[in-house]
């Protein structure tokens, strides 16, 4: 079971100042901060359009009428709210025993921080947990109690199993009827082809996919010495190795897997960010959000 005992809500609240804005056009009937294909009452000028009866007289550009003796109305961009899904990987690799439990704690922290952020932005947000299959679902909502539901779902999310990304695509397709923001929090230790298929499917339906990939320090550095028996946290498979001999190969394999994921993400316009988790701080997430906000 994941835990939320380590969450520092004061620290989580500070991240709301950064904000998270979708990069795709989203549809919503409520005013928000995300771009919408519709025209609305935003301050940002969008275009002129010929006046048609029924249009609001307040939109007529009288200067244009004076120049051209025709009626034009000014149209502005509309901002709306966003519907998003926080998709959390609860497989064994994310929360195996030992020092790597920090990886799951950080993932929960990121989930909670994003949920709070979306709550502040009046966006609808939900939580989907998966491992072998979908193990938990909190449909997106945009009211205050949703945050409590998400936290409860995080705290009660069962952990373990092998992460399978194949059932994730249909599940999201079934649950999201409009373009949404999907935040996938997983170490992506699965098959790259399967992950690429997920990326392709999600992007096909017009959703924006944001992948946050937490990795433990030990997982990256492989700081073991002597003869060790390695136990797979997902499958329980054991392998006795000489740490010094396999360290270089292990790190090379991990780096190659990361590069393959990056290529796959770039191909499908998926934003992939890898965190090296040393503690449960939200600083890496905040840094990422700032970077995303500053990006063109």
């Amino acid at each position: 079971m994941a835990t939320t005992a380590h969450l520092n809500f004061a620290a989580l609240a500070r991240i709301s100042d950064v904000g998270l804005r979708a990069r795709i056009m989203v549809h919503s009937y409520f005013a928000g901060m995300h771009p919408s294909p519709r025209y609305g009452r935003n301050a940002e000028f969008a275009s002129y359009a010929a006046y048609r009866p029924g249009d609001d007289l307040r939109d007529i550009d009288w200067r244009a009428w004076a120049r051209s003796d025709e009626y034009f109305i000014k149209r502005y961009d509309a901002d709306c709210t966003l519907s998003s899904y926080l998709v959390l990987d609860t497989s064994g690799s994310m929360c195996h025993a030992g020092e790597h439990t920090i990886k799951m704690c950080m993932s929960v922290t990121v989930c909670a921080a994003l949920a709070l952020l979306m709550l502040r932005q009046h966006d609808a947000f939900g939580l989907l947990t998966f491992a072998d299959d979908i193990v938990g679902d909190v449909p997106p909502r945009a009211h205050e109690r949703q945050f409590t539901r998400v936290l409860a779902a995080l705290a009660n999310a069962p952990t373990g199993g092998v992460s399978h990304f194949a059932p994730l695509g249909p599940a999201l397709e079934q649950r999201l009827k409009r373009k949404s923001l999907i935040v996938l929090i997983s170490d992506l230790t699965g098959d790259c082809a399967e992950i690429g298929e997920l990326f392709e499917r999600v992007r096909f339906y017009g959703h924006e996919l944001l992948c946050l990939r937490p990795l433990a320090v030990e997982e990256v550095q492989f700081p073991y010495h002597g003869r060790v028996i390695l136990v797979d946290a997902e499958t329980g498979e054991r392998q006795m190795v000489q740490a010094r001999e396999v360290r270089a190969a292990y790190q090379e394999n991990l780096r190659a897997h990361g590069e393959q994921l990056l290529r796959c993400a770039a191909r499908h316009a998926v934003d992939l960010e890898t965190f090296t988790a040393r503690d449960v701080s939200i600083k890496p997430l905040a840094a990422y959000l700032v970077k995303r906000k500053m990006a063109p």
């Binding site: 230790t189 003869r227 060790v228 028996i229 136990v231 797979d232 498979e237 392998q239 292990y250 897997h257």
Partner: peptide, 26 residues
């Protein structure tokens, strides 16, 4: 005194294969 240390890792996907040969050599 020479029992190997047991370490749980997220995945053995990145560990080189050849488990049996490796163990025999050790």
């Amino acid at each position: 005194k020479r029992r190997p240390t047991v370490v749980v890792v997220p995945s053995l996907r990145f560990v080189p294969r050849g488990f049996r040969a490796y163990q025999r050599r050790l």
